[in-house]
Design a binder for these strands. Structure first.
Length: 580
DNA sequence: TTAGGGTTAG
């Protein structure tokens, strides 16, 4: 065996940096530092291997005269994955500038990974140009990297263009397009990609299902999610833990906690995502007791909880009014699991006390928290003051938001409502002035409902739907029926005062988005079919009351997912027991 | 002797 072969063999068995240094010394002693296969192999090993060293790789790289593509690729690849991916881009620049070694498809894949990590959209465009000049615009792997980099840098439209320009698409490129849309929050677009994909012969796999199920979860598309579950069963993907976890999340977020529990119970293998998904699912359905029980099972199964586990658990305690349990678990985070509570956990505790009417305690929690300057905490307190009609603490919360320069139109509306409840016209007027003078914007409310394989979206007083005559006719009939069962529409003081705001628009004198969605569901589905509504804001008191009466008058189960939780309306009652 | 895809909170 030659000396160079011996060294290459030694490298294969090398597992620590000290040994690597010895091999390098051997390379020098034997005069092999300019032996290309040896130096390239050594460089590649240092740049990539966990037992290697990037600094050492740099040293070796700079000892190579006229490094060729493979050597450049090693150093760019190593830095692209390292804590300083910008270095990969700098080496790529040097490579292109040097004009000695030509970048190949691997070079582009590595440098694009670096662009993705440094959020270098401009650099990505420049690399894209070079890819075209080098004639690699049809390479499916390079283009998959390219579209991911564009998408993860916020240019989803460019990602779509790269994808569309591909002459041939394989399963990974389809999956990448779906997951990019899903991760960027374009869930309807993700689902539309699947419509196109179905017409190809590519097939699908667990990655496809996970991306699609995640988007179903976000938009509340239960029917489509059930269809995907069917495919997962037929094609044997239900054993895949990622698919199982995504199914739990989809069912829980689409309002079917029982199905989420069925998937959870059927899973042979569970990881922290599995437990977190089902605990959070119980939490948003107001089943704090269920969340606590599953959390105990998680500990018995020997799975270490993380901070997300506690977000779900504390949220469950808050929605069910389990104050003592919530406080106990909050303290347990640091005392038993060495987890530092973050602002979200403090938010849950403020909500837990606030919702339970312990507003002084909620205030104390914010003031003694590590982040008393976080507007989220004050906003949660303001929300609790609305529930419990507490003007004094509500004003304190608002004052803090203003001092932080974080008060929004939504906050003014919350305080207006509190003033309105206290018949404080001066207060309402002051908030109205503030909204107008500062030109504050509010979030427009919308609701959607899935009927068949389509999702129908409504805004307040929506007249854009093609079947709006029928919808408004059904709504008037529904209001009449609900009234016969005892529904009394709530008059809004704010509306009387003429405040043109989101809350004003969302009053019983106009038709809320969820009322329109319910009317549409009643008109378009057969008797007894449950209605599932997704709403972007919290459900208002009038709509909550209306939906309870509708569930009784029409004998329908109505599941409403609002901004923070689910409400299951059945027989004139709501699962939240009016505690929300 | 190198390259591309997945889940949970908010």
């Amino acid at each position: 065996m030659s000396k160079s072969d011996t060294i290459l063999k030694l490298l294969q068995g090398c597992n620590c940096i000290r040994r690597l240094h010895k091999i390098h010394a051997l390379v020098i002693t034997n005069g092999l530092q300019h032996h290309t296969p040896v130096s390239t192999k050594l460089l590649n090993f240092c740049a990539i291997s966990v037992s290697g060293s990037l600094a050492y790789a740099q040293l070796l790289f700079h000892c190579i005269d006229n490094p060729q593509t493979q050597a450049w690729n090693s150093i760019i690849r190593g830095f692209a994955k390292s804590p300083s991916p910008i270095q990969a881009i700098l080496y790529y620049n040097d490579m292109v500038f040097a004009l000695v070694a030509r970048p190949d498809t691997f070079t582009f894949s590595f440098v694009l990974k670096a662009c993705e990590r440094v959020k270098g959209e401009r650099k990505c465009r420049e690399v894209h140009g070079t890819i075209i000049r080098c004639g690699y615009e049809s390479d499916v792997v390079v283009c998959t990297n390219l579209l991911r980099t564009y998408a993860l840098n916020g240019s989803i439209d460019l990602a779509q263009r790269v994808f569309d320009s591909l002459s041939e698409r394989d399963l990974v490129s389809w999956n990448s397009m779906i997951s990019c849309y899903s991760q960027a929050g374009f869930h309807h677009e993700a689902l539309k990609v699947y419509d196109r994909m179905k017409n190809e012969t590519t097939g699908l796999d667990g990655f496809t299902l996970v991306g699609l199920l995640s988007s179903c979860a976000h938009v509340g598309a239960l029917n489509f999610g059930v269809h995907l579950h069917g495919i997962a069963l037929e094609e044997g993907f239900v054993e895949n833990i990622y698919v199982g976890n995504a199914l739990i999340d989809m069912y829980a977020k689409c309002g079917s906690l029982d199905d989420a529990l069925r998937v959870f119970n059927s899973m042979q293998k569970r990881d922290v995502f599995t437990w977190n998904s089902i605990i959070a699912g119980c939490g948003v359905h107001g089943r704090g007791d269920g969340a606590v029980s599953i959390f105990r099972q998680m500990l018995m199964a020997g799975v270490q909880p993380n901070s997300i586990t506690f977000t779900g658990l504390l949220c469950g305690c808050s929605h069910q009014g389990l104050v003592e349990e919530g406080v106990e678990y909050f303290h347990m985070m640091s005392s038993k699991f060495n987890l530092k509570p973050g602002v979200k956990h403090y938010g849950c505790i403020v909500d837990l006390f606030g919702r339970a009417g312990k507003l002084e305690k909620a205030l104390e929690i914010i003031e003694t928290s590590p982040t008393p300057d976080d507007p989220i905490l004050w906003r949660i307190l303001l929300g609790s003051c609305k529930i419990h009609k507490n003007v004094k603490i509500g004003e304190t919360a608002m004052r803090n938001l203003m001092q932080l320069g974080e008060s929004t139109g939504g906050d003014c509306i919350l305080l207006s409502t509190i003033y309105a409840g206290a018949k404080d016209t001066a207060g309402v007027s002051e908030m109205r002035k503030m909204i107008k003078s500062q030109g504050m914007k509010t979030t427009p409310g919308w609701s959607w409902i899935e009927v068949g394989d389509r999702i129908h979206k409504f805004v307040v007083d929506d007249k854009s739907h093609p079947g709006y005559d029928e919808i408004y006719h059904k709504l008037r009939e529904a209001i009449h029926q609900a009234t016969l069962f005892g529904y009394v529409p709530e008059k809004s003081f704010i509306n009387v005062a003429g405040l043109i705001t989101e809350e004003c628009l969302e009053t019983s004198t106009s038709y809320h988005s969820e009322k329109l969605a319910i009317a549409f569901g009643l008109a378009k589905t057969s008797k007894g079919t449950p209605l599932r509504i997704v709403k972007n804001l919290r459900v208002c008191r009038d709509c909550h009351s209306f939906t309870k009466y509708i569930s009784r008058a029409f004998n329908r189960e109505i599941i409403v997912r609002d901004r923070v939780r689910f409400h299951h309306f059945k027989g004139g009652l709501c699962s939240c027991k009016d505690y929300w």
